[in-house]
Write a protein that binds this DNA or RNA. Structure first.
Lengths: 188, 188, 188, 188
DNA sequence: GTGTAATCGAGACGGTACGTCCAGTCTTACA
DNA sequence: TGTAAGACTGGACGTACCGTCTCGATTACAC
């Protein structure tokens, strides 16, 4: 079990510098405009070091974005029984997290990476849609509306995605109303 | 003021061949993998001819996709007064159009093009979100629920976008339920 | 048979600029230190343009050197019957051509290229050794010493090669004496 | 003054394995194609160990080649007084050594290394040209033809060099005749 | 008909990013 | 301290593609 690795160990410093540089540059210039040469230079790292750990620009961006940004989910872990309050709480938290940071821009980068790299797409789903769907499902099932769980998740994921993709801030602010409509529309 | 053009006129045949080749290749290999050299070869057209009509690969893809695919909207032109029936009709039509063809794949290409080219993004919004929002707004206002118009549009656009982006067929089939929830949740 | 080429024709300006830049940089920094990036920049040419016309750095250097430098041979075209005078004349001419210019440095570059690229080696032989051997052979045969032709060529080629490779100026100046020894040693 | 070394002593085994691996690989693939990674792997040695003994790839190749191959000279240590016999003896010995082994290929590697590394060039001259010149000079001076010593050395070095560089086997076999011409041409 | 001028297919051009490869250095654990 | 292993920075390599430019050939309109 000792595995006793041999040779120089991976430089955590380099890995973190690359991830940070990637985030900074993606935010500054957008996903498509960023090049690995720039990232390597900004991270003060050899280009080969990047390729040693990520097999493509897409995989790197997916990692860089997910590592720091994606924690939209873990709030609605235990439904309180009050569906409306649970959803509002979660949604407001998500909006806040998206608003304060440059998270939306990073998500867009992730979306672009997903278009090229299937693994990035899978990671994005796993980190974004799946937990959200699970949380929403738990909340709905605990209030006896389990049959609407998937639809509710569709709606919430879709609305957030749309607000991100289209850079539509008003839509972001209307998400609270979406929750109300959802709660009311799935009653009985 | 006649403007009487001189010289060889542009070839409509070439323009159409390019659009068709673009669609075919985007469907076959995806947006990122397609190159203008391939498109030009498939369309039996010189590369410069493409640039005479479109200023970039992104603009071309936007045109190619929008020209054929994007007619999600014109169905709900006149609200009948029955909100639920109007929305269902429109939504079922949209789903059908998305299901039978490779429309979803083309939308994804359009999304990718939008990430690089602002004009493509604007065109996508103009052709996809705006008409949808207008139609939904008209339907809601004609039934006295105008204050929910934007939210309803957010929800429908978002749900469709999500189904497209994530290639989630079940979600596509649940859109009818979304309409029901929406109608019920915005009552009174 | 007209061949009537289609497409943009090759840019002679670019070709000449690349060859000149190659010569300049090889003289300035030596063969091994020169990179195609530098050559492309100095010639104000795209890198791909170089690769379009030469399949490697070696082939380019061979071309660049041979294009301008290699005219050691054509002097001894018609043997006069006086072997000693013919050889001296040719040898002095060769030495002069090697001395005044940077020819020796270019030859060394060519030699280095030949080590990597067989085609370059063949071209070097064809342009340097073969004509020299032919001229020497003609001179020897016309004076009834044909059986020494090859040996004489070996000697003269070798002596010049050595003077080039080892940057041995005194050896260069002794070539006249070599001719005398050669003429005397092959008499009768 | 004891200098009493501390720590693990250097491994002579490693040094010899590196030299042997270098020779093998240079012979198998040529100088330019060989990499230090390959050499280290073949010698079952760490890469750093190589750099502890040699400061560059060129220095290593120079050492590897010279260590085994270069002993062209020591035969004509004491001139016998019979110039022709001395030269023939030496030359035949040299040819034999060059023919049986892969010495010519190794020389070419050495030549390539010399192009990059001045020290390698100096070592090559010291090991190849200088002793040869000394031996030839001794032989010529002991027979009263001292004034031809340098020229004779030029010729013999050049002829051998040419045979090596151009892979010209016939030229190698004509070296005996060169000696005859040289002896005859420098008489009186 | 003939001239003129813009378009056409073809393909080279400058430029730039990619992903690979290697040299020479550095950092581990082990001997 | 020397060693094998292997990651590190740095930078050249050769390929691919973009958007532009330059050919000869084509094609419509103006004369």
């Amino acid at each position: 079990m000792s595995a006793s690795r041999v040779g120089r160990p991976r430089s955590e410093r380099a890995r973190l510098a690359v991830l940070q540089a990637t985030r900074d540059l993606v935010l500054a210039h957008g996903y498509e405009a960023v090049t690995l040469v720039e990232i390597a230079a900004a991270a003060e790292v050899g280009r080969q070091t990047i390729y040693r750990w990520w097999r493509s620009k897409e995989a790197l961006v997916a990692d860089a974005v997910l590592e720091q940004t994606l924690s939209l989910d873990p709030r609605v872990v235990t439904p309180s029984g009050d569906l409306s309050r649970d959803l509002h709480e979660w949604v407001e938290d998500s909006i806040a997290r998206m608003a304060d940071s440059d998270a939306a821009a990073l998500y867009r980068a992730l979306l672009a990476a997903s278009a090229v790299d299937d693994a990035a797409a899978a990671r994005m789903t796993a980190a974004f849609s799946d937990p959200l769907r699970a949380a929403v499902t738990a909340a709905f099932e605990s209030t006896g509306r389990g049959r609407y769980a998937d639809v509710a998740a569709d709606v919430l994921i879709g609305v957030m995605l749309n607000a991100i993709v289209t850079r539509d801030t008003p839509a972001r602010e209307r998400i609270g109303v979406v929750v109300d409509v959802l709660v009311r529309g799935t009653a009985e």
